[in-house]
Amino acid sequence: MRAAGHAGLIVLAFLATSSGAFAQTPAGIDTRRSGSEFMGPSTQAMQKDDALNPAMLWVKEGESLWSQPVAPSGKACVACHAAASSSMRGVAARYPAFDERLLRPVTLGQRINQCRQHHQQSAPLRAESQELLSLETYVAFQSRGLPLAPPADERLAPYRRQGEQRFMQRMGQLNLSCAQCHDNHAGGRLGSSVIPQAHPTGYPVYRLEWQALGSLQRRLRGCMSGVRAEPFAYGAQELVELELYLAARAKGLPGETPGVRP
């Protein structure tokens, strides 16, 4: 299906000599690969060509929301941030980041909702709502091609460590950890799916299986349901911590939002 098999086998052969997603060969070759490299050629083509990429609809929608005034403040994002192409360039690549008001790490979506609440005096947008996903995709789109650059902020370190521990912890009725699939079996075939290395570089992504755009948290909750674990709620600290760890693990890989995934 979706011609993923061939690419998967090549990747499997490539990974067979490495021990995990972090692996650096003695020659210093980085074996980390974006999820898009584990996909079939037709899905890859869909991501590469903006005219074919369904997620570009959300980018366009985000672009129009960017300059739409929000009641009751009547302020649009553009009123404070001007052109996103310059003010938001590289911003998504630094998220999750430590929030000075909440004194804890927040995702890009949560940061946007901070502006909704404190700068637009409006209600926060619901997780996975079209509006929030569109704004988040539009902001992340401004970092396309830039390397993921998680901040060296020491205040993030304990949260990132929590995320790392959770990544290693078995969970659910199937009793599997993220690491068992994504560090130890990346490139392998789980039923019809090729297991990627779990890099968050393309999010929010358009997923063919969802027939929609979804956030990284939706993806992580999907993996938890897959092992029959109780997913952490949207916005839960546990998911933010996992995102922090994933960002550190993918540091330096280029952002590719808006991604397309099988």
């Binding site: 912890q169 078995r170 969970m171 659910g172 009725q173 199937l174 009793n175 599997l176 068992q180 699939c181 130890n184 079996h185 938890m224 349901s225 029959r228 674990a229 109780e230 997913p231």
Partner: peptide
């Protein structure tokens, strides 16, 4: 990675339905 098919305790965060 093979789940224990006849074991229901000692597990972490099992979904409500299971």
């Amino acid at each position: 990675i093979m789940p224990a098919y006849y074991q229901a305790d000692g597990l972490n965060r099992v979904g409500a339905a299971w």
